[in-house]
């Protein structure tokens, strides 16, 4: 009798065990899509830096319905994110995905590629070269920073390339732009039909901009001006909340100008790199997440150029 009871219990215990180990893993992206305007959806990430808590979900991804299928913008930071994102797109729209546009080669935007059919993946040729060059190093760093969320993630280079210009998908008209300010090759997608501008990381809002591959803050600022001239209504930044109107552009231009001025002046005064990292950040940027963290990173990336420009060549 006793033995019987045990054997009945065993499968129950096993089931409970499996269930709890899945729950304990706890690594589940809870993605939610918000419809900005009919058929245009955004999945907003946090404005943090990569961590084991957020699994790299610090990025905005998006999808746009057309009458021939869905156009997706960016695939997220990991295979697991990509899979959750794809499931969300399919349940939300009930349509198949025709295009996945990868805006640039940074891991938070391109590391969910595995979850999508390879023939739907598109990228600018120069961005794709950068992904081929830097992908493995980014991958090592992502495993270090976000850990187990990355399990099974491998780099997939999109087989298809994009060209800047007018681009029609079904009943929707897009304009694709190739810019350089953030990484040297940055895709911006303007949905002319709805007036939604997907700037990707050419624009950060309430989140400090990142500069590891930026050709320079002056280049970036000039391109932003051109971008702002587009007849947009809503802006979807690469990081930070979706906004109507030009408020995100105002903040970004102010922040970029402050950074450029601060680095120039520091170089003119002969400050060391470490002193620049410790400089005060104006109060008006208090709402800009990760500003100190990114000042440390940007100083590493860009200050050496400002420093050298402020020194004289010493002849022999």
């Amino acid at each position: 009798m006793k033995r019987f009871a045990l054997s009945l219990l065993m499968p129950v215990l096993l089931l409970v065990d499996v269930g709890s180990s899945l729950a304990q893993d706890g690594l589940e992206y809870r993605l939610e899509a918000t419809e900005i305007t009919p058929g245009v959806w955004v999945v907003e990430g946090s404005t943090e830096s990569f961590s084991r808590e957020n699994g790299g979900n610090i990025v905005n991804t998006a999808f746009i319905e057309t009458d021939v299928g869905v156009v997706v913008i960016d695939s997220g930071p990991s295979r697991r994110y990509g899979e959750a994102f794809r499931a969300l797109i399919e349940t939300t729209t009930g349509k198949s995905i025709t295009h996945v546009l990868i805006t640039h080669h940074h891991p938070d935007h391109a590391f969910g590629n595995q979850a999508f059919e390879p023939e739907t993946l598109y990228m600018l040729p120069a961005s794709r070269e950068l992904l081929a060059r830097d992908g493995d190093a980014f991958s090592d760093n992502m495993y270090r920073l976000v850990g187990d969320w990355m399990r099974g993630t491998e780099i997939v280079l999109p087989p298809n390339t994009l060209e800047p210009g007018e681009w029609q998908v079904g009943n929707r008209r897009f304009r694709l732009l190739e810019l350089t300010g953030h990484t040297g090759s940055d895709l911006v997608v303007f949905d002319e039909t709805s007036g939604v501008l997907f700037t990707a990381d050419m624009l950060f809002y309430d989140r400090a901009l990142t500069t590891p591959q930026s050709p320079g803050l002056d280049v970036w600022a000039a391109e932003l001006e051109a971008l702002e001239a587009l007849p947009y209504r809503w802006v979807v930044p690469g990081h930070g909340p979706v906004v109507e109107g030009d408020v995100a552009f105002r903040q970004m231009q102010d922040y970029l100008a402050w950074l450029d001025r601060t680095l120039s002046q520091a170089a003119t005064e002969g400050l060391s790199m470490m002193e620049v990292m410790n400089l005060p950040i104006p109060e008006r940027f208090e709402g800009v997440a990760e500003r100190r963290h990114e000042l440390i990173r940007t100083t590493t990336h860009l200050y050496p150029h400002y420093e050298k420009a402020a020194l004289a060549l010493l002849p022999e």
Partner: peptide, 9 residues
């Protein structure tokens, strides 16, 4: 940020 260039003052 760059293991080959870490500032020290």
């Amino acid at each position: 940020e760059d293991s080959a260039q870490v500032p020290l003052t």
